[in-house]
Simulated assay, not measured.
Amino acid sequence: MRTELNPVEGAGRIVLAVILGLLIWISAIDEKVFPVEYRIPLEVDVPGNYAALSVSADTVALRYTGSGWDMLRFQLGRSHEDLRRDFVPAEGSEMPLDSNLELSVPALQPDGQVQLSQVVPGAIFIKVDTVITKMIPVAPVFSDGIPARYRFHRVNPEMITVEGPASIVNLMDSLRTDSVFPGSEPVIASLALTVEKVAYSDDSVTVSVFNPSLPTRSRIFSTVAY
């Protein structure tokens, strides 16, 4: 004989079935290992008397593995920060220096049950150079095409102090300005081209030009006739 269930009993059995299914699902999830990957920015710090000319990567991928609940707790509690590493060249190294910096897994291993399985890339390549300073003369450029050496002019300041990697700074012999119209009033001219990784004591100069009035042809002839 079939027994009819009242609405409360029917709802109770449905809830019980849902709870049982959820417990089975949780148990299965907790036994399964999940891979998770995070890509984060990479910052490489060098001492103040050195400059990094190039770094082969600016981000890294961190690959973690862990069971369901452990991985969930790890993801909820994880702070998203940049990965920072220090690089100090060996004393007496010839510059510029090409070297590599390993990103070891043990050093980045998190606390808890989740494990860091791989860092990609496992090492980065870096090129560094010593930082030097140098005084470089300013070469104004005039819009009429006449070279600065053929006209009376004054530049303030005449020299700019630059600071940067030796392999770059040593190749700099003058600093050109933007095109300047040779008028009677002093004008402020910006440096035409600045080099990346080089710091400048000034980014503009004041250019004063003296243009003496030249005699016209008629005045020359009248002077000769006289």
Score class of each variant (00 low, 15 high):
G145N: 03
W69I: 14
L16D: 06
A148I: 02
S99Q: 04
F152K: 15
L171W: 03
G122H: 06
V46D: 01
G92M: 05
A61R: 13
S213L: 09
L175T: 06
Q113N: 14
S56H: 03
V44F: 02
A192Y: 04
S208Y: 02
A51W: 00
Q109Y: 07
Q109K: 11
R39V: 15
I29R: 12
Y50E: 04
K134A: 10
P186W: 10
V44A: 04
G10Q: 12
L16H: 04
N100S: 15
P186F: 09
V180M: 08
I29S: 06
A148G: 06
L171C: 08
G145P: 00
P140T: 06
G122D: 11
Q115K: 15
T59I: 01
I220S: 01
Y226H: 11
I132D: 01
T59H: 10
S190V: 01
V169R: 05
F34Y: 15
L103M: 04
P41Y: 08
V155I: 13
S208W: 03
T65N: 11
R39T: 15
V128H: 04
V224C: 02
I124L: 08
I136S: 02
A51G: 10
P165F: 03
L20Q: 06
Y150Q: 13
N170Q: 14
D202M: 05
A90Q: 12
I40L: 13
T130R: 12
N100V: 02
V187T: 15
L16Y: 05
V120W: 07
A61N: 10
P165N: 10
L171Y: 09
Y150I: 05
T216D: 06
F210Q: 14
P147G: 03
V155T: 15
L16S: 13
R151L: 11
V44P: 00
F210I: 14
P140N: 02
G183A: 08
D70C: 01
N6Y: 06
S99K: 04
I132F: 01
G66T: 04
N6S: 14
L116D: 01
L103N: 03
V8Q: 14
H80D: 13
A61Q: 10
D173Y: 13
I19Q: 09
